[in-house]
Design a protein around this nucleic acid. Structure first.
Lengths: 226, 226
DNA sequence: GTCTATAGTTGGATAGAC
DNA sequence: GTCTATCCAACTATAGAC
């Protein structure tokens, strides 16, 4: 929005961090801290210290802590959902009218989650997207509706078309079970569970994606025909 | 622990609430509020107002906000886990050495969750147990280990014995997927999801239990033999 | 065992200089 | 656009009376 200045803005204590502009550094720190400790557990001071700037700079850019949370979630989730829809559209175009395989739909839904996670947060366990299910609903609901609503409807529709003999309640239930598994995984729970105790080497991401798809596909197929 | 007094203790502003003793009322209010808003989002003032008593009474009984959270989670989850193990033991005793059916194990795991939810929180959507996956790990981890560790090991073992041809990593993964679905459900997400939008009548609890068992059983059976 | 009152800290947000 | 300094509200925990 501002005329792109080739220099770093003015002065700023942002010398320790990367030289990207303050707004980006704030979003980075906010995403990391909100993901780890939630909205109420994270102070503006912690975020601005993490970004190497001041509380007033954050309020200048975002207006309030609540809007900063929403912007951080939006930035993290919008490209994932765009990619999901893109993969679904590609699959539909390739299918030439035939119903999609269940595994194809699930792959389009889950693969972008795993891949963006590796690309953007190579170290962190918990994604800020998981906070959509534990942070205060009044902050979270607008994002859910705006960013997730259209994508969710596309996948509900795709599932229903691929399993036309199932009731809509059962399909929605299965869809929700899929989301439950995904949220659990991106919450980093695998890393602090009995699985981590018995298998400290961790789980390969490709294998994890494959197992999630197999598991959910079988679960959905087990839903009774109406 | 104190000699059971037949009268209500002394005076107390607890006249609006039920006449049970202060400690119980505090745990009730804490369970409800921590479940809804999390540890950091809930103040001692809100809890003690909800219990019709004072902050100092709460600190007298529990020592700190953190211990109050841990006690509230313990009280809510211990009987559920005891019942799970009891159902598993009953099934094992009845099986006379034969491996248990997958559905029997899953029923023992999930049924107590659904039933205690209906019995104790007829109105509330979100269970405090769900906060085991979003509240600060340093508060939560001790409870997980103490209250959930033995129960989880029993069920991991039961799953492994019923599916001897599967690798332990895959069994643990499937176990974690089961937990993910259960956490999602007890977080009340079904009530604020696309499912609630399309099916505002809600889902019958018996049907929900049945569908969860079918879904997870099929998912587990889809795991590849080693 | 419970209260009122308060100590001591930390929080979000803003004013005003630069 | 960013800073320092500050306001004021809310928090946890405790002291001390009863």
């Amino acid at each position: 929005m501002p005329p792109s200045n080739l220099d770093t803005p003015a002065s700023g204590a942002g010398d320790g961090a990367s030289p990207r502009d303050t707004k980006e550094r704030l979003l980075d720190a906010a995403e990391r801290l909100f993901a780890e400790r939630g909205f109420e557990g994270t102070s503006m001071r912690a975020i601005t210290q993490g970004a190497g700037t001041s509380v007033s700079a954050a309020n200048y850019h975002f207006g309030s802590k609540e809007k900063l949370l929403q912007e951080a979630i939006r930035r993290a989730t919008e490209p994932v959902n765009a990619r999901r829809i893109e993969l679904l559209d590609i699959a539909i175009a390739a299918s030439e009218g035939a119903p999609l395989a269940l595994e194809t739909i699930l792959d389009a839904y889950l693969r972008p989650v795993i891949e963006f996670r590796r690309a953007n947060r190579p170290d962190e366990g918990r994604s800020i997207a998981a906070r959509l299910f534990s942070d205060p609903p009044e902050l979270i609901q607008p994002i859910k509706i705006e960013i997730f609503g259209p994508m969710t409807r596309r996948f509900s529709q795709a599932l229903a078309e691929t399993m036309p003999e199932r009731g809509s309640l059962d399909i929605e239930l299965g869809h929700q079970f899929l989301i439950g598994i995904m949220v659990y995984v991106i919450s980093g729970q695998l890393e602090s569970s009995s699985l981590a105790a018995t298998h400290p080497e961790g789980v390969d991401e490709g294998l994890l994606l494959q197992r999630m798809i197999e598991f959910v596909a079988a679960g959905l197929r087990a839903l009774p025909p109406a």
